[in-house]
Design a protein around this nucleic acid. Sequence first.
DNA 1: GTCAACAATAATTTCGAGATTTTTTATATA
DNA 2: TATATAAAAAATCTCGAAATTATTGTTGAC
Lengths: 274, 274
Amino acid sequence: MLRFTRLTAQIPAFLARVEKHSEDDWIWIFMDTNAAANVTAAALAPPKPVAARSLVEAAHEAIRHEILTGGLAPGEKLRFEMLRKRFGFGASTLREALTRLVGEALVTSEEQKGFRVAPVSLEDLADLTRTRKFIELEALRESILNGDDAWEGRLVSAFHRLSKVEAKLSSGPELQQDEFERRNNEFHHALISACPSRWLHHLHGILYQQSERYRRISLVNRVVPRDVHAEHKAMFDAALARNVELACQVAGEHIERTLAVMGKVLNAGMRPGG
Amino acid sequence: MLRFTRLTAQIPAFLARVEKHSEDDWIWIFMDTNAAANVTAAALAPPKPVAARSLVEAAHEAIRHEILTGGLAPGEKLRFEMLRKRFGFGASTLREALTRLVGEALVTSEEQKGFRVAPVSLEDLADLTRTRKFIELEALRESILNGDDAWEGRLVSAFHRLSKVEAKLSSGPELQQDEFERRNNEFHHALISACPSRWLHHLHGILYQQSERYRRISLVNRVVPRDVHAEHKAMFDAALARNVELACQVAGEHIERTLAVMGKVLNAGMRPGG
DNA sequence: GTCAACAATAATTTCGAGATTTTTTATATA
DNA sequence: TATATAAAAAATCTCGAAATTATTGTTGAC
């Protein structure tokens, strides 16, 4: 855990402010990732709170967030000099953070030639979606069959929290995107949380994070009106009713529809080099 | 690529000998991983040739090999001082190699508390096998449906090479284990190589490497007689005949049987702490 | 004008020392 | 004896410089 002594000794450039909450033992580091970033005059996202136990973890989270939100573009070369200026970490620290991201397939690396943000493509999106559907439906099936009262409790809670932020999202500005992603993740994870297979969860986690990347691209420039809340509610109802076939069918359609929407956005907005 | 200047400048302790083959551009580094290892008087494995483009890659390969073959035991703490003495790499290099292994789930890490070899268990083996079957059969199905002449060629070649080493394995000593694993991998990969999904291949790769670890444990102390060659041949024949259902059934049984054998070995040989 | 060899520049990779944190040991107190 | 606190030891984590490699630019020969 980071203590104040640690933070005062080396305050990296990326730090916006530091807070100590009395409720727990964590130090919250608010990162202003836009401060040193070469972003255009777009609206600045609010600082993302990160409870980091080490600088490598902080660097990992910071770079991951930039990749997911597009601050670091697909295919972009990740030079250490640039990353050092932008985030304020040392070379070895950055290197280890990038290696973690390679393991998550968000970054590619070639020996002696450095790192790049993993590219995106329509083909990859289609393959990813198809594979995720394959994994997620199996996990959902097992989860519904194994779900107990605690599972139902998690599901009800997650659905409620998601519904609240969905309501805000449709009316207000796009400030809530990080929060929406968090709760969306929470809901989808709750659905399959009673699946007993550790490995199925592990694989699903990899694919889900990948698809989050595409989802955020299509979220910022939404072109197709869509009632996501109704889709989530249908999944929620079918799961609680323990109707395996219906739940899988609805979830499958939900994933497919996401592909359709994202496909349109990518197809319209992607440039050859991007 | 490593040049000789690089090697002569810093010859790590793990180097046994260095060769330059004229046929290609690689420098072959023969690592004597037992030299500095605290192994007992067990029979020394022959040096494993590794074509490394960087020291991180060499360290990654070396440690991975030790974990797969049991030279580093499941659950064992991986202290940097020990690794430095044993392999001869610097701290940052080792750190990055371990981070790669964490991405492959062969090593676990806890912030500020270091790295450990990932544990093994009967539960994990059962879950792993079940998940691998799920993924591999789907990939096999798609592969057979999409396979062209080139795929058949790869399959015939891989099966032939595997058969040769299988014959040697049953008669001779256990010197061929690395080679058997390589060709076994080659054969199983050839079977599904016509599956067009990149992500299915990616996920399968993760699971296959994990199961290799358990397989090697059961190989060194084989207790159940088994005609592996016949099983491989049945898979080979069904795949070439484009009989999807039969191939999947046979492959499924093959995976299940492997679980049964490994389960017996683990159950008999595993100690509480190991 | 094209290509190869060479020099200059820029990037990645590696190492070891110092800073920080965790773990162990010692000491005091109830 | 058990518990809490403090000092000592051992481990991890981080940084920046040095070594190595890749890339770019230049020159000269054909």
